[in-house]
């Protein structure tokens, strides 16, 4: 085992400096080192999307990125998104439509939905489904999630509700 590597990054706007094992995944780093337990591990293969976070503005799988790769980067997690009033409407829509049940996929799902919404416009339901297909949900039928994202896109665009 090689020795720990020092990394410095910002997480949800906060400067963080830690010495980490080179093999440590970003999501394990966030969870175990920083206590940011809102990001979840589902498959550890980059498939299910439960660990989705933002790295320098891009959504990434926290289980496919090493913590050392985040050195010098800005990471945003669900805890950051939850504190950002810009996404109050998205979280409120998920609650209003019951677009989550157990809540395990939800942080990652919100991150991916935010990415789609940030692109602007009113995506079709098919486009929403396509965009969210890297985030698995075993509880809902996805229908309510699509409803929630669609309703936010429409409201932001000033379009009438579907």
């Amino acid at each position: 085992m090689s020795g720990a590597v020092e990394i410095a990054l910002t997480v949800n706007g906060e400067a963080v400096r830690r010495a980490v094992d080179p093999r440590l995944h970003l999501v394990d780093f966030l969870r175990s080192e920083l206590g940011l337990t809102g990001s979840h591990l589902g498959c550890e293969h980059g498939v299910c999307g439960a660990c989705t976070v933002r790295l320098d503005g891009e959504t990434v799988r926290g289980c496919l990125v090493l913590a050392v790769q985040a050195d010098g980067a800005a990471v945003e997690t669900i805890e950051g998104l939850a504190a950002d009033p810009a996404w109050d409407d998205l979280r409120a829509a998920f609650v209003a439509r019951n677009a989550l049940q157990c809540g395990y996929c939800t942080p990652g799902m919100l991150a991916s939905a935010a990415e789609l919404l940030a692109a602007g416009g009113v995506p079709t339901r098919d486009a929403i489904r396509d965009h969210l297909s890297g985030n698995y949900c075993r509880c809902t039928g996805y229908h309510a999630i699509v409803d929630a994202v669609e309703s936010v896109a429409r409201a932001r665009a000033g379009a009438p509700a579907a």
């Binding site: 969870r31 998104l81 939850a82 979280r91 609650v95």
Partner: peptide, 19 residues
């Protein structure tokens, strides 16, 4: 009616076993 409990999960506030 929406669930009160959903708000916590939508804010990343779930407490699962591994937490």
């Amino acid at each position: 009616r929406p669930r009160e409990q959903a708000k916590r999960h939508a804010a990343g506030g779930g407490r699962f076993l591994d937490d």
